[in-house]
């Protein structure tokens, strides 16, 4: 089959981007969306052009690297599927696909379809963990966790951090991502001692990052390749206001968002001088 890929090309974070249309012939319906881009890139390289930069790694739907908009839907039209597992048979011969990067102030552009999602790492860094150093753990079975509780925690823990929730949200809110981690850890008894601190810290960080607000409309959960339920957002809201009410000091601090990549290379080494 033949497809036309209309792809957002942008050289760098501050560069001006634009859409460019590429016809791709000989698309095999068994290909994944990413393999289709591979084929396009091979032909671009052979023509001496720069290939389309896109993020990918495991290509089995779990690492969360890949993701872009296909015709206005994060990860494309198939529910619960990342672009790496989306096969081309779901499209029609001759169709035009518009591929666009996630767009959000909190996900600055890097190049073409690649964006910077370090804001997610910072939200986890602010408190998305149970503070237990190696060696401190009691025997696994001293903490009993009912099957239904463990299952609910697992539902929330399934998040792959791809950013589709932010991309789908009309407000570019990170509520589903943050709520998923707060829920995963808060549902389990191991996470309860730190529950208030975690909610305050993670919500504070989420608010320092330029994400929008949640308006409870549910686009995020519809786009989520792991189908994380909206329930995790309400859990975050509850934990947050309860923790705010109980809070006795103002010790919560957040991390300054950082969009720069350069560490300022100091290396000016002449390779000829050494050989």
């Amino acid at each position: 089959m033949k497809l036309t890929l209309r792809i957002w090309r942008q050289k760098s974070r501050n560069g001006k981007g634009k859409f460019i249309s590429y016809p791709v012939y000989n698309v095999n319906p068994e290909m994944s969306m990413l393999e289709c881009l591979d084929v396009l890139n091979e032909s671009l390289i052979e023509r001496g052009e720069e290939p389309v930069a896109f993020e990918h790694d495991c290509r089995e739907g779990i690492c969360g690297s890949c993701g872009f908009m296909i015709n206005g839907i994060p990860h494309g039209p198939l529910p619960a599927t990342t672009v790496c597992q989306l096969t081309m048979r779901h499209f029609k011969d001759g169709q035009e696909l518009v591929l666009e990067p996630w767009r959000a102030a909190a996900f600055p552009s890097v190049k073409d379809l690649v964006v910077d999602r370090r804001s997610f790492d910072r939200i986890i860094e602010a408190g998305g963990y149970i503070s237990v150093s190696t060696g401190n753990a009691p025997d696994g079975n001293t903490i009993l966790v009912g099957k239904d509780v463990a299952d609910r925690a697992m539902d929330a823990a399934a998040c792959i951090g791809c950013g589709a929730c932010v991309a789908a949200c009309p407000n570019a809110s990170a509520a589903l991502f943050t709520g998923a981690k707060i829920s995963h850890l808060g549902i389990l008894p191991q996470g309860v001692p730190e529950q208030d601190r975690r909610a305050l810290n993670m919500v504070a960080q989420m608010n320092v990052e330029p994400f929008g607000s949640c308006t409870n409309i549910g686009e995020c959960t519809g786009a989520c390749p792991k189908e994380i339920p909206l329930e995790v957002i309400s859990r975050m809201n509850r934990d947050y206001w309860q923790a705010s009410w109980k809070q006795r000091d103002e010790l919560v601090r957040t991390i300054t968002p950082m969009t720069e990549w350069s560490t300022g290379s100091k290396l000016k080494i002449d390779p000829n001088a050494t050989s």
């Binding site: 237990v132 401190n136 009691p138 696994g140 903490i143 099957k147 463990a150 191991q190």
Partner: peptide, 14 residues
């Protein structure tokens, strides 16, 4: 033990 304490949601009996 360490992973349970970290909150890894291992499968459980009822």
């Amino acid at each position: 033990d360490q992973c349970v304490a970290q909150g890894v949601p291992f499968a459980r009996e009822y």
